[in-house]
Amino acid sequence: MAAIDIHLFPCLSDNYGMLVHDPVSGRTASIDTPDGEEIARQCSLKEWQLTEIWNTHWHPDHTGGNMLLKDRFGVHIYGPGKIDGRIPGIDSRLGDGDRFDFGDHVVRVMETPGHTLEHIVFYLEAASACFVGDTLFTLGCGKLFEGTPEQMWDSFEKILGLPQATKLYCAHEYTLSNARFAQSVDGGLPALEQAVARYAAMRERGEPTVPTTVAMERATNPFWLAGSADELGRRRALKDAM
């Protein structure tokens, strides 16, 4: 079976656009729609026909291109259905545990409230990829505009409970600013310091720091480490040693 293609490209000031293409069925999905014209241009460059949109949440930098692309290509729009009326042009309203087909592959939906109340992520096991929107970033997480810390922690547990090698495609390039905060609370952690050095070099070369992986975020993300059993044990040991 031919491998699924994932094409990442910058949009707006710090968003990433993402196209997911199944070469067997010919289906192509846009993960959110930060810039409809740029998404259409990238489809043309790749010679892929856009067939659908997978919206993670309602914010305008994630849904702003929905209607342009629906009018131009007749796409089918999948999105969160928990709070109705927020996703322009939505066709399929999805919730926790829902699944839908992408060619011969299955996309699994998980609800991840916190950043917004209706946020969902899309897990495509065939590509070992999860499209996490603004729930989780490399070395960080989305601001809690609507949800609670408890909800965000539960959402983290869902995402970081996926297989360790799963690639996490977040929607923004916030890594270096996230790194400054991470070092302020976990500076000296070897895995974090190594990761920050690598990310700084990547950005210097103009490369994206997305995707990250489950394994990397479990080892370096300060919001995960703050509540993990391993980190609590590490901090107790440091306290006992002082």
Rank of each mutant, 00 (worst) to 15 (best):
L192W: 09
R27Q: 15
K70V: 00
H7W: 13
D154I: 13
M1R: 12
D230G: 10
T112R: 06
E111K: 10
D98E: 07
S155W: 01
T166V: 07
Q42D: 03
Q151I: 04
Q164F: 11
E207K: 13
F9P: 09
L8A: 04
K158T: 05
E118I: 05
G95W: 01
T175V: 15
T135D: 09
Y16C: 04
F223N: 00
D96L: 07
L94M: 09
L168V: 07
S30Q: 06
A191K: 13
A215C: 05
P113L: 11
G161W: 05
R93Q: 13
C141I: 07
D84P: 08
R198T: 13
G147C: 03
S184R: 09
A191Y: 03
R99D: 08
T212M: 02
D71Y: 04
E150N: 12
L139W: 10
E207L: 15
A165H: 14
E193S: 14
V75H: 01
E231K: 12
G17E: 01
L136N: 03
R205P: 03
F137K: 07
M1H: 12
L189H: 10
I39D: 00
G81I: 04
L176D: 08
F9G: 08
D71C: 03
R27I: 03
S44C: 12
N55K: 04
Y123Q: 07
I90N: 00
M67I: 10
G65F: 00
W54C: 01
G17N: 03
G65R: 00
D91F: 01
E52Y: 06
D240I: 13
S25D: 01
G85M: 06
A182T: 05
L160Q: 10
H115F: 13
D5Y: 10
R236F: 13
L94F: 02
R205I: 05
D32I: 00
E47W: 06
T56K: 01
G147K: 02
E173T: 05
P190K: 12
S228T: 07
D5F: 09
A219S: 14
T138E: 14
S30T: 12
G188K: 09
G206F: 13
T116C: 08
F131K: 12
E52R: 02
Q42H: 12
R205G: 09
Y78W: 08
P208A: 07
L232T: 09
C11P: 06
E38N: 11
D134F: 06
K46R: 15
S44F: 05
C130A: 15
L139F: 12
F122L: 08
A182V: 12
Y78Q: 01
M202N: 03
